Amino acid sequence: MSTENLLITLLPSTDVDLGRWILQHHGVSYTERPHAPIFHILALKAWGSGKEDYPLWVKNGEKIPTVPQIMDYYETNGDPAKRLMPDPQTDPEANQTADELQHYARFTLGDCVVNWSYFHLLKTKSAVWPSITTGVPWYEKLTCLIAFPLVRSLMYKGLKLDQATADQALIQIYAGFDRFDALLADGRQYLVGRHMTYADLAVAVSLAPMILAQGYQGFLPNQAMCPDDMQVIYRQLRERPTGQFVQRIYDDHRRG
């Protein structure tokens, strides 16, 4: 396989967009090889990696899987001026806060966003289609076209999705917006300190699908194609302080 700078991705994943953003923040050029859900597992296996090892950053032949490892690599080896975590030695409290917020955003809220979004969007092929097939290999797109009900069934089964799971996920998402609305109520520009941190990126990426943020590079659905009840939620959350914060972080700090 080629050892050029590659990013092997599950196309719609929020952590994948976080990985893209970290690389772009550090000025790293790369070629993305996106894959549709389920097919990404085969692609990762071909690179000798596990099914959860996305995004997989292949840097001159060296394999660096997942966002935490990509982050660690550039926090250690990148330009010190572009570090995204507060210094644990000089500002341990800010470092701990940023780490707690990114973890909450990526896992507690991120998992809920996945569960709510996929449960509803997979019911409407036209709404979810760009998110799972844009730029993927032709044979993946063809398979999804022919066997979409099977792909949907496998995703429902793999993610253990049902109405109760989706309803509980939305409750947690609203709680997350409440938490960040309260944090932003003092007028702060960033979540931790006076400069953008990993926490800001993690929150922006994890919640981007809930406001259909402009600038997200994983191809979010067209709101007009989504079910009416989803459109109502998107509009409500977009107007909240956290929704406005998410879009501002994309507007101010995402390039390309």
Rank of each mutant, 00 (worst) to 15 (best):
N5W: 00
Y54I: 11
P34S: 04
V192I: 10
W116I: 06
K59H: 15
N95P: 00
Q24M: 11
A98D: 05
P65Y: 02
A105L: 12
D200E: 10
T66K: 12
V16A: 02
A46I: 05
S49Q: 15
T9G: 03
E100I: 15
W47C: 14
I249H: 03
R254D: 05
A199P: 03
T9E: 03
D228R: 11
I22F: 13
W129D: 00
Q172A: 05
E75T: 08
Y30V: 00
Y74M: 11
T143K: 07
I38V: 00
V16E: 01
A204C: 09
E75P: 09
R238I: 13
P92G: 15
V232D: 08
I64K: 03
V113W: 01
L84Y: 01
I41A: 05
L121S: 08
K160N: 11
V246N: 04
A105W: 09
H35P: 02
T134E: 02
L44K: 01
T133R: 02
Q96T: 11
I8Y: 00
R255A: 08
N95K: 09
A185S: 15
D53P: 07
D15L: 13
P80T: 14
A98T: 06
T133G: 02
T143C: 14
A199M: 09
H40Q: 05
Q69T: 10
T197A: 06
W47N: 13
E32C: 04
D15K: 07
G61L: 05
V203F: 15
T242Q: 07
P86F: 07
G215F: 10
L11T: 01
N222F: 12
L237N: 06
M225A: 12
A175I: 11
E52F: 15
L56V: 06
T134K: 00
D186A: 14
D72G: 12
L101M: 14
Y250A: 03
P241G: 06
N60Y: 07
Q24H: 09
Y73H: 07
F148K: 03
R194W: 13
D17S: 12
L170F: 10
T90K: 10
D178M: 07
L145P: 00
E4K: 06
A182N: 00
P80D: 07
G193T: 15
L159F: 12
S117D: 12
E239W: 07
K160G: 09
A166Y: 14
T66R: 11
R194Q: 15
L11P: 01
G110P: 02
P137T: 00
F107A: 12
G78T: 13
I64S: 04
V67Q: 07
Y156A: 04
C112Y: 05
A164H: 13
G27W: 01
L220V: 04
M230V: 08
Q236N: 14
L201G: 11
N222C: 12
R240L: 12
R33M: 07
P241W: 04
L220I: 05
L184T: 05
P227N: 03
S126C: 15
P55Q: 03
R106D: 15
R179L: 14
M225Q: 10
V16Q: 00
V28L: 00
H35A: 04
Q168L: 14
L23K: 01
H253Q: 10
R188Q: 03
V232L: 14
D91G: 02
H120T: 14
T143Y: 13
L44V: 06
A147V: 08
A127M: 05
L121A: 13
A175R: 13
I22E: 14
L161C: 09
T108K: 11
G256Q: 13
T14S: 08
A36C: 01
